[in-house]
Nucleic acid binder design. Structure first.
Lengths: 344, 344
DNA sequence: GTGAAAGCGCTAACAG
DNA sequence: CTGTTAGCGCTTTCAC
């Protein structure tokens, strides 16, 4: 026996008013007499009524759902992001439609198509690639339909979208400068993919620091990585095998840090003793294991929250601006010892 | 300028057919002539038409959205779960409404209320507590409205729901038996909360193994934990300080394992050398760091996928059974060395 | 302050 | 095989 949910008509009947009045009460329109209001509220409580979102959404052609597109749910960075997003959404009474792309552009395109069916209120996305024209076009489409888009962490070439990023360039610049201050001259970097903004930015910070301190860039110290453990692992081994190995390695993201540590472990290299290691993004687990790895850190849940707020702001002001707002959150340096110059 | 999305009428006009025909084509009803079909498809392509989900959902009083309720998005176990869920959802053309409860019952109740508005197709939930009557009642409500519920990892007392769990009892039993086989007699366990099924089950497996091997339970070896790092850390320190410390510790989940390792690090205890350590759930990161921690493992994404499949199955068979299906996935032992008996 | 009625975009009988 | 039509449950003018 499947009992139906009550609808607005039943409430109206129970309360002895019209459905319009019920609707007004449900939407806190204040043009309702206290008496009617109370009767409706009683009926709602009695019949355990909850308005049907689909109907409301159809009628108003708006919705309370936000589409969130994440490339790799499994990466702790994105979990944290998601945590910030869900928390903010909860506060604002918005709901999250979650889509995972598994870093596949093809899936991203499909997802963006599916999302059209849902007439979402807005979209928060960390795009797979910064140069994907299909994705960009679809995102444009959403915006021109009045569905604001916020880019998170990764930007695309177009500048029309709101976006939340962090000052990675500056963070890495300061990290590498710190290494230099500690006496390092042979500093390697394992980069991220260069079709990703974070990848490029972090490399830029590295280059900037070296150049500014008059240290020539050494191509064999610049390893093209992909933000994955394995690649970083192999690069690290190769770096160690160099005739003139670096005294410090900058790892461009948390997975890269793990890759370095894996190689270090095999080679019995102690970070901060035999070779310096500097990471990007905090890895809480390492602290528990007594690894004191210095890193450029940022408030990740905060990034998610900011993205939500940015979206929120767009909801109110109807017009679509030519140029999106860019929120750039600061990064911070945490020095834990692994930045030190090897003594020997 | 906000251009509207095309609706079914425009497609009908463009294709020179009625909206019914358009609807039939969109829903793959095969009673349409090839000629009409083609005309409609052309119009759809030309106007870039996507059906409005809200309207469809209202009309059919069904939906393609599944509510997923997760207690701690940040815990890698749940990220993995979510990965399995999203992947399966993607395959089945379902969409995920994600809700986080942050392990708060109060938020869980709110979330369950919100979900009613959405007339979801089904619900997958890892409830905060197994004994929460409010949650159970609300879940019942969904089921009696024809919205099937699948419990993931944590069960509630009621048995009317479908659920996906793993054979934790057996897994821990085998792990502890293995420890005993290796000569351990003084085996401690740091448990999970006892209002959680996994917590209780894992403790049971531990007790069962000891009893079956004629080893008396030592209350000071049974530490009441909460699946969190800190608590496990403190318990581990206390265990080490015992006049007669254990030779092995069983950590009831991944966070507990981290807590033990943190304490081990401080005390210069090498897992598998000075004291044995056995964990629950694999921690990939530890492998990269050359920690060879034995563990009871399970296929976590698979759990999420199974939950989706279970839900799917319910969609077809309309009736609500008295008793839910219980899928119990196996666990596996991975021996990496940390189970060994200290030589001294 | 309140009610009647016209949609929102789609599906699903029901006729033809 | 195809079109007409009556809802699905709600919001929102527009009168009263």
């Amino acid at each position: 026996m499947i009992k139906q949910e009550a609808n607005i008509y039943e409430i109206a009947k129970e309360a002895g008013v019209s459905i319009a009045t019920v609707s007004r009460v449900m939407n806190r329109s204040c043009t309702v007499s206290e008496k009617s209001r109370q009767r409706v509220l009683d009926a709602v409580a009695k019949l355990n009524y909850v308005p049907n979102n689909a109907a409301r959404s159809l009628s108003t052609s708006t919705s309370t759902s936000v589409g969130v597109v994440i490339p790799d749910i499994n990466n702790p960075f994105f979990s944290r992001l998601l945590q910030g997003i869900t928390r903010a959404a909860d506060e604002m009474g918005l709901n999250i439609f979650l889509f995972g792309t598994d870093e596949s552009s093809e899936r991203e395109h499909r997802v963006l198509e599916t999302m059209r069916e849902h007439r979402l209120r807005g979209i928060i996305i960390t795009p797979v690639s910064c140069q994907d024209t299909v994705t960009q076009e679809r995102l444009h489409n959403f915006q021109s339909l009045g569905i604001p888009v916020v880019l998170l962490d990764r930007e695309v070439d177009s500048t029309v979208f709101d976006r939340v990023v962090t000052d990675d360039d500056e963070g890495v610049y300061r990290a590498v400068s710190e290494l230099i201050r500690r006496g390092h001259r042979k500093i390697a970097i394992i980069t991220g993919p260069d079709d990703s903004r974070p990848g490029r930015e972090r490399l830029r910070g590295y280059c900037r620091a070296l150049e500014e301190h008059g240290i020539a860039l050494n191509p064999s110290y610049i390893c093209k990585g992909d933000f994955m453990v394995n690649c970083a692992y192999e690069h690290t081994l190769a770096l160690c095998d160099l005739p003139e190995p670096p005294t410090a390695i900058f790892a461009s993201n948390n997975m890269t840090t793990y890759g370095c540590l894996k190689a270090f472990g095999e080679r019995k290299i102690q970070p901060g003793v035999d070779m310096a290691l500097f990471g990007f993004d905090n890895i809480e687990e390492l602290g528990w294991l007594n690894y004191n790895i210095s890193a450029v850190i940022r408030d990740v849940p905060q990034m998610g929250e900011q993205a939500m707020r940015l979206l929120m702001r767009r909801f109110d002001s109807r017009e679509i601006p030519e140029k999106g707002t860019r929120i750039c959150l600061p990064t911070e340096l945490v020095l834990r010892g692994s930045e030190q110059m090897p003594s020997k």
